[in-house]
Every structure is written in C-alpha cells, then in structure tokens.
Design a protein around this nucleic acid. Structure first.
Length: 114
DNA sequence: CTGATGACGGCGC
DNA sequence: TGCGCCGCCATCA
C-alpha cells in the first residue's frame, strides 16, 4: 500500500526508527521518538515495544536516556537485553551502557532532513 | 471525569 | 553516580 510518506501510523514510524538502528549501536526511547517525528513520546515508544511481537525487531538496542537498561535489574528481560547487547560487542556494565554524549546529537544530525 | 500506572526524561542535590 | 520529584503521554479501572 503505497501510502504517502507521513501518513504512516505513529507506531509504524517508531518501528521503522528502531529497525534503522545499526547493530552494535544503541539509542534512547526519547531519541527514537524524535526520529519518528514524535518528540516527547518516549513512553509511547516503550509501549509499542512492549506490544510489538516483531521477531526481528532490535528492541535490545533501546536504552534509557542515561544508558541504563529500562527493565528492573536482575529480571529476565534485563539479563536478556544485556546478553544481546554484549553479543553485538556493546560494553554493558551493571545493566548500563556508555551513552556517548554525541551518540544522540551526532546521530540526530545524520538523520536530520537534508 | 479522576486517579493510577508505566520498557521515559530532565533537573536538582 | 545515586536518588527523589515532577512533568509528559497514552491507557485503563
């Protein structure tokens, strides 16, 4: 269905933004929301992730803005995410990833409309 | 309509 | 860094 760009549903754009994250890299909920054209909807991103069952969705690359895994420490999903991240070469310490200050801005620049 | 909830975010101390 | 508080949004009882 060739829907004109922009008419895609919010969660469709969110899923696209998530799929666009390169392996070995991470992004924040808020960052994804912005890229999806939904600034301030970080919580919506979280909801979509929780509802979506897309098997190839790199949900593990989504972290909180401070670089911590959003799940409660020690829980199953928490360990699973840390595991998947390390599998991609991402350094995870105590459920936390080093979020380069530029990661978001730099990355945002790459995504900014040219 | 009101209040509670949550894979969030920003600020202050 | 850790923590608490409050703001924000979408859902739901």
């Amino acid at each position: 269905m060739d829907l004109p760009a922009g008419t895609r549903s919010p969660q469709q754009r969110i899923l696209d933004a998530i799929r666009a994250i390169p392996a070995g890299q991470v992004a924040s909920y808020g960052g994804i929301a912005r890229r999806a054209g939904l600034p301030g909807r970080a919580r919506l991103v979280a909801r979509v992730l929780g509802e979506s069952d897309a098997p190839e969705l790199p949900w593990h690359r989504i972290l909180r803005s401070d670089g911590r895994i959003a799940f409660a420490p020690g829980t199953r999903p928490w360990r699973e995410q840390a595991k998947r991240l390390r599998a991609e070469g991402v350094a995870v310490r105590n459920g936390r990833v080093r979020m380069d200050a530029d990661a978001e801005t730099l990355d945002a620049a790459l995504w900014a409309p040219r």
